[in-house]
Simulated scan of single mutants.
Amino acid sequence: MPRTPGQRAGLSHEAVLTAAKRVFAERGLPGLSMRSVAGELGVAPNALYSHVADKDALVDALLDDLLGALDPPPPDAEPVAGLREVMLATFDLLARHADLVPLYLARQGARGPQARALGAAMTVLLARLGVDDAAAGRVVRALIVSTLGYAALATADDANLNPPELRADLEVTLDWIVRGATA
């Protein structure tokens, strides 16, 4: 079976992702393209398509990769504390990567395996609180949207509120959402 251009070039998904991170850090989203990542790796652009479908998939992989730094709450965690901890850790992570917050907002979160694992872990905790599967998806979405919104406020160039204050407000909001979902 013939090897793909990416295999012949000795590339891996991880190498492509690492190069994409460097390009994004240096040039931002406007400078991130399959051609610029290929240039960073010293290969022809077609070599990348063995590892990533297109620029959208590349951006999705960047966003999901960042979520890999988060530990999903264990299934035996106290449910409210576990949900709060993962969302606050997400806020803290996004606050450290302000350049990615607009991408999460534009894509309404992340869709990759890391994001799905976090969502599944949150759903398990919600089930332990008595939230059924149909409602759990809405609750997870509300928790994520709130966290993204607070991260966007905390990382905005003209932010009038400071991140610690916003983080404290987020903690209260997360509790309201979970209490409302379990009422």
Rank of each mutant, 00 (worst) to 15 (best):
R22D: 13
R111I: 00
A19P: 04
A98F: 07
A121I: 02
P2M: 03
A25G: 10
G6V: 08
P163W: 00
S33L: 11
A81D: 12
G119F: 05
D56V: 13
A127Q: 09
T123I: 09
R8N: 14
A152P: 08
R27A: 14
V37S: 02
R128L: 13
M34P: 06
R96A: 15
L70H: 02
A181K: 00
M1T: 11
G180R: 01
S12W: 06
V140G: 08
A44Q: 06
T182S: 06
P75L: 14
V37R: 00
G6W: 05
V101F: 09
L58Y: 04
S50D: 08
A95R: 02
L11K: 02
V37C: 01
L103A: 12
L48W: 00
L170D: 07
P75N: 07
D56N: 15
L62W: 10
R35I: 15
P30M: 03
G28P: 03
L161I: 14
G28D: 04
T90D: 03
L41I: 03
L41Y: 12
T173Q: 02
V178K: 00
K55Q: 11
A151F: 05
K21P: 06
T18S: 14
D99A: 14
V124P: 02
A47Y: 00
D157K: 13
E78Y: 08
I177H: 00
A117K: 02
A19E: 01
D92R: 01
A15M: 08
M34T: 11
D64Q: 10
A47G: 12
V59W: 07
A136I: 12
S12F: 04
D92F: 08
V178F: 01
H13S: 10
K21N: 07
L129Y: 05
R35F: 06
T18V: 15
P163S: 11
T173I: 11
P72N: 12
